[in-house]
Amino acid sequence: MKKKYALVTGASRGIGKAIALKLAADLNYNILLNYNFSEEAALEAKQLIEATGVSCELIQFDVKETEQVKTKLQIWAQINPEAIIEVVVNNAGITSDGLFLWVKPEDWHSVINTSLNGFFNVTQPLLKNMLTNRYGRIINIVSLSGLKGKAGQVNYSAAKGAVIAATKALAQEIGKRKVTVNAVAPGFIVSDMTAGVDENELKKLVPLNRFGEAEEVAELVCFLASKKASYITGEVININGGLYS
């Protein structure tokens, strides 16, 4: 029997870490945990995940580097011929905020490349096996910014908006093979990305009057990764406390 894995990108901390833990604890998936910079944080996450009774392996790559991602995934597959990746969660993303008039080209490209090209670089090499096995879950972590738009985040909004469109299109292509593709769009979530904002002021905009927790996003992702969500594909599901619908 194949050993079943879920790959979560950018999973050493924050939402990605919470998702990896939830997939391990609730769905009993072994975790392939991607990180780029922080090995120490990744090792801490690995320890927590393995405490749930599954195995966790670390895989380091920068999602925006096409050949690096392809090579690392190929090497891992060769070393683990008994493994199958059933779930892919494209969580890795970065922000580099600023008014569009003053955005530097490198800040535009790095944000776009991480979210959009990262989705392509990670998902495409793993898709063939999902289609062959006639089962898979692809879940893209997008953003309220990709749906509503946000001043000062034209690059991030463009990146996440593009991933939303890609989610819908890919779902149309591969649904017959029982591979679903969905997106989760968080609003204000307590994480590194919101560490510098004024939570007390911004939560006034949210009908539920608080920021969300990473674990709440993880609950939604875990549902979409489960067999319970077999008839859901091509969807973008908001999790924002009623801020936008």
Rank of each mutant, 00 (worst) to 15 (best):
I237R: 10
I15Y: 05
T233Q: 09
N129D: 14
N91W: 00
Y231L: 09
A229F: 05
I85T: 06
I84A: 07
S110G: 02
E65K: 14
P207V: 10
L58C: 02
A11V: 00
L23Q: 03
A25I: 06
P207W: 11
K204P: 07
L7K: 00
I139F: 03
F100Y: 13
A195C: 09
G175L: 07
E67N: 15
G93F: 04
L58A: 01
S145W: 09
Q74W: 06
G93Q: 01
G241S: 04
F211Y: 15
L99Q: 11
V89K: 03
G242C: 06
G10C: 10
A51P: 03
L224H: 10
Q60W: 02
Q78P: 08
G161M: 05
V184M: 13
A45C: 02
D198E: 14
S191K: 04
G149K: 01
A24N: 02
A166C: 08
E86K: 12
W108N: 13
N80W: 04
G187D: 10
A42E: 01
K228D: 14
I59H: 00
A225E: 05
K168V: 11
G118I: 01
E235R: 09
Q47P: 08
V181S: 11
V142R: 04
L127S: 09
G196F: 10
L21D: 00
K64H: 15
Y35H: 10
L243C: 10
R137N: 08
V236K: 02
K104S: 13
V54I: 09
E39I: 14
A165M: 10
T123M: 10
F61E: 02
T132F: 12
A225H: 04
E82F: 06
A24R: 02
G234K: 12
N240M: 05
I232G: 04
A183P: 06
L220A: 10
N91S: 00
I15K: 05
N133H: 14
T95G: 05
R210W: 03
Y5N: 02
N238Q: 14
G98Y: 02
Y156W: 06
N200E: 15
N140T: 05
N240H: 08
H109T: 15
V142T: 15
E235P: 06
R210E: 08
Q153W: 04
L224Y: 12
S245T: 11
K176V: 13
T180Y: 00
A25T: 09
S157V: 07
G136C: 06
E213S: 11
L126T: 04
D62R: 13
V184F: 09
I19P: 04
A20V: 05
E67R: 13
K150R: 15
L131R: 12
P81R: 07
Q172D: 15
S96T: 14
V89G: 03
S143V: 07
E173S: 12
A77T: 14
R137I: 03
